[in-house]
């Protein structure tokens, strides 16, 4: 899948913002992982993932977010999540990822938390 159909990438004050524009089922999740791992290679250290346009996320996608957040933290950075729909919040809570990832109501509050 062309990653431009999956997400929009922006940057503000040195923080990379990934706005996901599709549901994150198995197929899109593997592309999300590739894009996130590409950011690690580029030495990006601060990332906000905006999920406001996402109505479905599976455990592969959540796992990719958790994995990249852990690796960023090892280098003093972080990955923060924002704008979760209710059913996404339920999935994060069920897996327990809410206790591992920092989740904010809005993109601005996630950016301000860095």
């Amino acid at each position: 899948m062309d990653s431009t159909k999956l997400m929009k990438l922006r940057e503000t004050s040195g923080i990379k913002i990934i706005e996901i524009t599709t549901d994150l089922s198995s197929y899109a999740a593997s592309d999300l992982r590739k894009v996130l791992e590409g950011l690690l290679v580029e030495k990006v250290d601060r990332v906000v993932v905006n999920l406001s346009q996402v109505s479905h996320i599976n455990s592969t996608a959540v796992g990719a977010l958790v994995g990249v957040a852990k690796r960023l933290r090892q280098n003093g950075g972080d990955l923060k999540i924002c704008a979760l729909a209710d059913n996404l919040t339920r999935t994060f809570n069920l897996i327990g990822a809410s206790s591992v990832l920092e989740i904010y109501e809005s993109e601005n509050s996630a950016l301000a938390a860095f």
């Binding site: 599976n58 592969t60 796992g63 958790v66 994995g67 852990k70 897996i95 327990g96 591992v100």
Partner: peptide, 8 residues
């Protein structure tokens, strides 16, 4: 919660 896989 911090596992990347095995939640399915």
């Amino acid at each position: 919660p911090s596992s990347e896989r095995g939640h399915g």
